[in-house]
Design a protein around this nucleic acid. Structure first.
Length: 153
DNA sequence: GCCAACGTTGGC
DNA sequence: GCCAACGTTGGC
């Protein structure tokens, strides 16, 4: 079982939207490294830190779970979608998505500042300067520590 | 709104 | 295959 951090802009889709929906197709990932993580390493049951980017403040808002493994992201083939990609087709979907289920919203979101201030979390990819990757692997111990902080521990 | 740090594109 | 130009991300 693996652990992940997945970024979302809460103005577009927040942890509260995920709570309301129960689960959602995580469409719109348009980065090969992130896609390959989904394709090669994500499995049903993996747990996810749901990270709010472009938020005030940015940080981890809660937890999700992979409920369906990687499959074609059809928004790439939809000309009306903001995620449309003319190079995607039924023969070559090009982009993938996973289905993410809701698990919990933290009592207090774990802000980026809070993550930075914790020496034990200094290895987290999201803290690396200029790291734009929207799907990142997270070490189990880091995942558990962030959850503990989020629950008020 | 700024801009550093990337990733992608396309001419050569 | 190189690399300059361009577009995007995302914190601030």
């Amino acid at each position: 079982m693996n652990y992940w951090l997945m970024k979302t802009e809460p103005d577009v889709y927040s942890i509260e939207d995920l709570r309301r929906d129960g689960s959602t197709g995580w469409e719109g990932v348009r980065n090969y490294q992130a896609r390959n993580f989904m394709r090669d390493e994500m499995a049903t049951g993996d747990l996810v830190l749901v990270y709010h980017s472009n938020a005030k403040p940015p940080g981890v808002a809660g937890v999700g779970r992979i409920v369906r493994e990687a499959h074609p992201d059809l928004s790439a083939q939809d000309p009306d979608s903001p995620y449309f990609d003319a190079k995607a087709s039924p023969d070559n979907p090009r982009w993938l998505q996973v289905e993410v289920g809701y698990v919990e919203t933290f009592d207090r979101m774990v802000s980026l500042d809070r993550l930075r201030s914790d020496q034990a979390l200094s290895g987290m990819m999201v803290l690396r300067k200029g790291c734009r990757l929207s799907i990142q692997p997270v070490a189990r111990r880091d995942f558990e520590r962030v959850v503990k902080i989020g629950r008020g521990g």
